[in-house]
Design a protein around this nucleic acid. Structure first.
Lengths: 223, 223
DNA sequence: ATTTAACGATAGTATTACTATTATATTTGT
DNA sequence: ACAAATATAATAGTAATACTATCGTTAAAT
């Protein structure tokens, strides 16, 4: 089932980039290595100049693909959410029991990504770390509303809508399916962040996962 | 009861600043106007040069108070959390019923700040907006662990611990009091952000508040 | 009256976040 | 096979950012 990705392409809204990085070797190297570099030095420290040096290419060449490093982060985020949506769909597809289906969905969106699927130049395990640490910055800007209108966040919104629909399938009288879905998604990332950096304000650790926490929270709210 | 703040001072960890802005007129103008300016142009667009111009002072003078704009944001965040902790304490102090107390606590930490208490140069209503839009950036950096060791986030952690204790008072068998408390706090901010910028992925609007959502979520989880 | 602290003004630096131009290499269409 | 189009590299340049350092003036404290 996973091999579907050999035939499908993760679709990122095309207004995010100037030139589709999937269409050239340089483009792929930009994506592959930006993930590695952002993870190493953080988004604030990351520059196109440093990336150029890392991939033995020129700063100006990277600008042909992305207008700014902010757009590149949005590309990476969208790519990740699309990839996660794909995981969500294939892993829940065959489950007919709606309760079970929802639990699987929560598992998929709140778990750690620890294995790289190896189907492309993108290392999902490292990308996942970037999502935990940096993805909020892709929408917490003065340009959100404009960028939202341009469709930059479509993938993210569709993913949340999907989870929300699974919540409704379990209990269609529940008044906050969208809020619960968005809380599970962002909250999942946040709990993982706390586990790594602020262990004194979370109960999550390696054995007691955010997944457990959010499944319990959801089940109690829907019954 | 609110007048306590005339006598008490909001305490921000002193490693965050070089010189305490509360100790001078210039310092107070820095704080007062940085809040206004960050709200206007966003944290990314904000610079000490622009702030200097706004307050009719010199860039280099601002550097005598804060090492960087990042530290200034951490100061504002800590100040806000301390102020919120104060609100939390006074508004829940006299409630003896633990269930009722917790609901009040959730109300305090997830509601909009729409009135400025006017006791100081700090406009809490505008500061609250900055917290919604920018506060995540104060800890989502490569320096978190170092800064955490230095005590920069003590106020934030104490606030969450307090809410967590109120959760435990209602049900001390609940396995995730800290995670629930941190989810309520960050989730509250996030739902307000969604309401303003991504209404299609939240059920919250002006009449149907994040407070309602989180109270329901909590009650269902603890019973 | 003198030391000390605070502030403003000016200057300077390395880096960032780009844009523009040109030359060269590679791919593609005919 | 050749011309045309496209992609990339190299270089240069710019305005702004994020600071640091120095110095003179003013105001406050001893």
């Amino acid at each position: 089932m996973k091999d579907l990705l050999a035939v499908l392409k993760i679709a990122v809204p095309d207004k995010i980039f100037i030139k589709d990085p999937e269409t050239s070797d340089l483009g792929k190297r930009i994506i592959e290595n930006s993930i590695i570099l952002i993870n190493e030095i953080g988004f604030e420290g990351f520059t196109f100049k440093k990336l150029g040096k890392k991939i033995g290419s020129n700063e100006s060449s990277i600008y042909r693909y992305f207008e700014s490093k902010h757009k590149l982060l949005q590309y990476l985020s969208s790519w990740y959410w699309a990839w996660l949506e794909y995981q969500l769909v294939i892993e829940t597809f065959s489950i007919s029991n709606s309760q079970e289906k929802l639990e699987k969905a929560i598992t998929v969106v709140t778990r750690i990504v620890k294995e790289d699927s190896n189907y492309s130049h993108i290392n999902e395990t490292i990308l996942y770390k970037i999502i935990v640490n940096e993805s909020s910055k892709s929408f917490l800007t003065k340009e959100v509303d404009l960028e939202n209108k341009e469709g930059y966040f479509e993938v993210y919104k569709r993913l949340i809508t999907r989870v929300s629909e699974m919540i409704e399938a379990v209990n269609n009288n529940y008044p906050f399916p969208l809020s619960l879905a968005s809380t599970i998604l962002e909250g999942g990332l946040h709990q993982h962040y706390l586990k790594d950096h602020f262990p004194s304000i979370t109960n999550c650790k390696s054995e007691k996962t955010p997944t457990e926490f959010f499944i319990q929270l959801t089940n109690n709210s829907l019954k």
